[in-house]
């Protein structure tokens, strides 16, 4: 365990002044800033007006005890992720178990051992930091609604298998386009393009998780569960094409170049989770489904279609969406031929 945990703002809740002094002293010696509350009610008051990174919580207290505090913390979204370390006597282990079931992160027995205190606080603060970071990433890559949904349904961002639909999209002939106009115009164009695409994707519950140059990857069904992820991905694709058409009308009116996009969509099992390092991480999916979606996107140029989907996406679609069977195709990277379908644009699904 590291001996130089970054300092945090801690709240010590204990009705016994000696315990408060002791914990406070230990924590201040470790470089943290400490505030004190004598009971649960006072603690909630302080939480309402200040930000804390971690709470050290006594169980037995007058007015409002530790259990009630834990209950309140769960009720409020912005409090839910503050790690709580329960401080208790050794013979109270049953109570500790209950606290952990109620959302407490960890526990320390009193009298508190300074080495354990340092270790537990360090681990708690680190978890808080990672959670803040995850939340920030989700905010950045998802819309406020999706981020909110995620927070409410609880984060499930660890690596896992999920049934999802993956979408790849990029601008056709972008390099030529970029060469024909000023760099400022190109960036401007990309920003408008991304804004429109984000709107269509997140409007259908998808999450854009990668943007590279003029291409993007979006996931429907993870990290937010979507029961009809395939249908929603295809609807998003149709909206994207519609938006590009509208955008092109605008471009044409000001004699600026038109853009065309290709979209590939595939559904199936993916491995989803956070990847990267502690400093930089992103939510992503890997697996055959992801590869297939990327290949289908590339294949739109060969097929001369705007939207291509795989067999399993098509099978999940409602009758409201028309598709046309393009038969078996040899897609790069696949040994066997795969059956592909085009989704005619301009249909009002």
């Amino acid at each position: 365990m590291s001996h130089n945990t970054s300092p945090g703002r801690l709240l010590v809740v204990d009705d016994n002044k000696v315990n408060r002094l002791l914990l406070g002293r230990g924590l201040e010696q470790q470089g943290h800033r400490v505030a004190f509350a004598e009971n649960g009610r006072q603690a909630l008051d302080m939480l309402a007006h200040n930000n804390f990174d971690l709470i050290l919580l006594d169980i037995q207290m007058p007015e409002m005890d530790g259990y009630q505090v834990l209950e309140k913390l769960q009720e409020k979204l912005e409090w839910r992720d503050i790690p709580v370390i329960v401080t208790s006597a050794l013979e109270e282990l049953d109570s500790v178990v209950r606290c952990i079931e109620m959302g407490a992160e960890d526990y320390l027995t009193k009298p508190v051992n300074p080495v354990l205190l340092r270790a537990r606080i360090g681990a708690g603060l680190e978890k808080k930091r990672l959670r803040d970071q995850q939340r920030e990433l989700v905010r950045r890559f998802a819309t406020a609604e999706v981020a909110q949904d995620l927070e409410e349904s609880g984060f499930a961002l660890g690596g896992r298998f999920v049934e999802a639909t993956v979408m790849f999209s990029d601008i056709r002939g972008f390099t030529t386009l970029a060469e024909a106009q000023s760099p400022a115009d190109t960036i401007d164009l990309l920003n408008t393009y991304y804004t429109l695409m984000f709107e269509a994707i997140s409007g259908q519950g998808g999450v854009v998780n990668q943007m590279v140059g003029d291409g993007l990857m979006a996931i429907f069904g993870a990290p937010l569960l979507l029961p009809r992820h395939a249908e929603q991905a295809v609807r998003a694709a149709l909206e994207m094409i519609e938006m590009i058409d509208l955008f092109n009308l605008d471009q044409a009116a000001t004699s600026r170049p038109l853009i065309h996009i290709g979209i590939g969509i595939a559904s199936g099992t993916v491995i989803a989770g956070y990847t990267g390092t502690q400093r930089r991480a992103t939510y992503t999916c890997v697996g055959d489904t992801v590869n297939l979606a990327a290949r289908l996107e590339a294949y739109t140029k060969i097929a001369g279609q705007s939207i291509l989907i795989d067999e399993s996406t098509r099978q999940s679609l409602s009758a409201a969406i028309q598709t046309s069977d393009l038969g078996l195709a040899q897609v790069t990277g696949k040994v066997q031929e795969v059956r592909i379908y085009a989704v005619p644009t301009g249909q009002k699904a």
């Binding site: 009705d15 016994n16 002044k17 000696v18 315990n19 002791l22 037995q60 207290m61 007058p62 006597a89 009193k110 009298p111 508190v112």
Partner: peptide, 17 residues
């Protein structure tokens, strides 16, 4: 209930010292 809680408090700080 208050009796138990007060005794609990004394138990805890006494052990610390």
């Amino acid at each position: 209930a208050a009796f138990a809680r007060l005794a609990h408090s004394i138990k805890s700080s006494s052990a610390s010292l």
